[in-house]
Design a protein around this nucleic acid. Structure first.
Lengths: 254, 254
DNA sequence: AGAAACAATACCAAAAAAATACCATTAACC
DNA sequence: GGTTAATGGTATTTTTTTGGTATTGTTTCT
């Protein structure tokens, strides 16, 4: 753990650097550590006591420096938890190079996420669902509706439907849907995503905390088993003002 | 049975490994055991009580670590039975093997297309263009603005900019931009696309024949040469009510 | 000398981490 | 089929870690 402290503080800077208030020198040092990438957004700052010990200064002095950076919006404190580097931009990007779960993806960007269940249960399929999933009329479908929240901002509404033969007990899905399917041996090998723009309407707008009419990103995904059967259909509606979908492409010859 | 516990836990790691929460160290240790093959998919994890006893920590701490791995889809619990290693999750290996042009894309959907030039010429670069394309201030950029029309309906506004060293005579571009670049030996090998939703404003709305405020799809693309140089930057604005972006993904193990 | 800023000490409060004790489900066994 | 032991599940409490604050001493500038 001490490597991080050493990397951030480089204590010779604090002592050698001429005259002037200690806390200002510390503030500058911390600022540099953030902007140089030694601390990424979402990272926790070492505890104030550790910083004080390592730099041989009092904790209050450390606090004074941290206070400044909090006031300027570079850091956020959480009582009992720690002090964290704030994210620089409000836009979120998702890369296509790996299909990661929502939670994983947000975590990599230093955002804490939670979900709120909107629906979770077994239902009689709608005609659309029967057609997309290839089900007989007397089958059942599991519907999973979640409101995805990143750093206390509602970011997306996600609605999935899966044939009950692949997911007989929707209540057992707590985290990743793919994980729940994988444990039952239903591993999709192919997926098709359709991305479109969309004016968000009520009641979705209310859930996402935007006014109706704002542009959103609708991402529909159909996953297939090796056999060609459709496993799941998911429709996600993202706030357009807070989410970008980023894809990196490798171009081949011809 | 104890050999397995010893192999998984290597308890010196837990005690010796510096500071930090116990459950995080345990989580990492278990993750390693799975990925190193000490535990194969389908195998049962030792019972939580055994793990706790052997590592001399409480069972709840063990559960906290296991909880994390379950949430991430590496493990599955079965009440009354045990906790098991799940099959590797699916990830996207490569998104799109090739970048299709607008014309190709539409042809595949059975639409005939034409284009109307909005801009075509050499200009002094804006600050944004200088930054994105990596140009000096005295360079020139070629700007190509087209209104894309499919089956007589305006569908997209496409604005591209390319350093003049790659495209000294924009007027010679009549069809595909990539074809024109290819003729001069500037074949991009990598591209990054950013897709976002957007409320279309004037004057673009008028060009596309929609009322202002309607949702549109903004697709920004930056293409790179093998050398890492940026070749072109294109921003396309599609009518949201008439265009979907479809991507097909192939999922592979691990 | 006095005032203001700076720095150190000591203690408070909230959150997370860890431990304890008990409940519910499964599966094996009789 | 019922019994039982082994397993994961959960509620509650205690301990540790973390930021928060009031008080006091110290320097510095006027």
């Amino acid at each position: 753990m001490t490597e991080l402290l050493a990397a951030i503080l480089s204590p010779e800077r604090l002592q050698a650097g001429g005259s002037g208030p200690l806390y200002l020198k510390l503030r500058q040092t911390l600022e540099e550590a953030i902007q140089s990438g030694k601390l990424n957004h979402g990272d926790a700052l070492p505890p104030e006591r550790d910083l004080a010990d390592y730099a041989n200064i009092s904790r209050v002095t450390v606090r004074k420096a941290v206070d400044d950076l909090v006031k300027d919006g570079l850091l956020v404190r959480r009582h009992g938890s720690g002090t964290f580097v704030v994210k620089p931009v409000s836009k979120v990007e998702q890369s296509l190079s790996r299909l990661t779960s929502f939670t994983e993806d947000m975590a990599r960007r230093g955002l804490t996420t939670r979900a709120q269940w909107l629906d979770r249960g077994l239902f009689h399929p709608s005609p659309d669902e029967m057609m997309i999933l290839g089900l007989p009329a007397d089958a059942l479908v599991a519907r999973l509706g979640r409101l995805r929240i990143a750093d206390d901002m509602p970011l997306a509404i996600e609605r999935a439907c899966i044939s009950s033969e692949f997911l007989p007990d929707p209540a057992q899905v707590t985290g990743s849907l793919y994980a729940a399917l994988g444990q039952r041996g239903c591993r999709p090998v192919r997926a098709v995503q359709r991305i479109s723009a969309y004016n968000i309407k009520e009641p979705d707008a209310a859930l996402l905390g935007v006014t109706a009419g704002v542009a959103g990103l609708s991402i529909e995904r159909v996953s297939y088993l090796a056999s060609g059967r459709v496993v799941e259909f998911t429709r996600s509606l993202y706030r357009g003002d807070a989410y970008d979908f980023v894809a990196e492409l490798t171009l081949s010859d011809t």
